[in-house]
Amino acid sequence: MSGLQGLMEGRVVLVTGAGAGVGRGVSAAFASAGAIVGIGVRRPEAAEETAADVAAAGGTPVILRCDVTDSSQSAAAIAQLANDYGRLDAVVHNAVSNRSSEATDFEHTTLDEWEDHSSVTVRATWRLAVQAYPHLQKTRGAYLLMSSPAGIEGSERAPFYSAVKAAQRGFVRALAREWGPDHIRVNSVAPLAISPALENMKILEPERVKRIEGLVPLGRLGDPETDIGPPSVFLCSDEARYVTGQTLVVSGGRFTSL
């Protein structure tokens, strides 16, 4: 992607949940922009395809074991990047619960299911911020959260996913004000993009995917690398130096009133 060239040259970025879907695509986009990309994954063997994408895009892939529900793992991942490359410029928190694509039976489920969502999307959002803070303070860096349109309009099928993604947007607005004096920018992206779950749905329920695509004015679901990647890179780059506290909805026009 030539439009990104040089935007993150020499910058060091950690992407969580980078093994597939949006995390994989965004990692490749950061590589196209010249970044050293920390590929945060629960299982390192799940990062090989992303690492290949990053290398193919001209970036430097660094595979990191980073289960964001484990404080010691996320701390170690951040420390490794900062120690080995001398800086950390951006953290992109993209990881979600394994159950994020499941329907939630709100009226009958238990706090265990809530915890599955909250531990990854709410607690880890806070914890990564705290762990990355001294490094981002030094580089006047950026913290980017991958939220969701569901976190704005509320999904009947996924009330927990909606709530935790909304939590991230509230977090962004408040932390942008708190960290503004440190020149650390805090933003989120709400993407509508092909994910592993949607890939499965294409096979199992192609009509449902067609219905979803029919709701998108641009007529298709976003590509993680070429549609979601560039705005994500932009928000972490110097080109967005005056943008903070925002949620950028990248949905092909599907959500226009948020």
Partner: peptide, 17 residues
């Protein structure tokens, strides 16, 4: 702010349900 935005949207999801 984190809690309030989460609860706001939880309410919307429940309204739909």
């Amino acid at each position: 702010c984190t809690a309030v935005e989460a609860i706001r949207v939880m309410a919307k999801a429940v309204a739909r349900r």
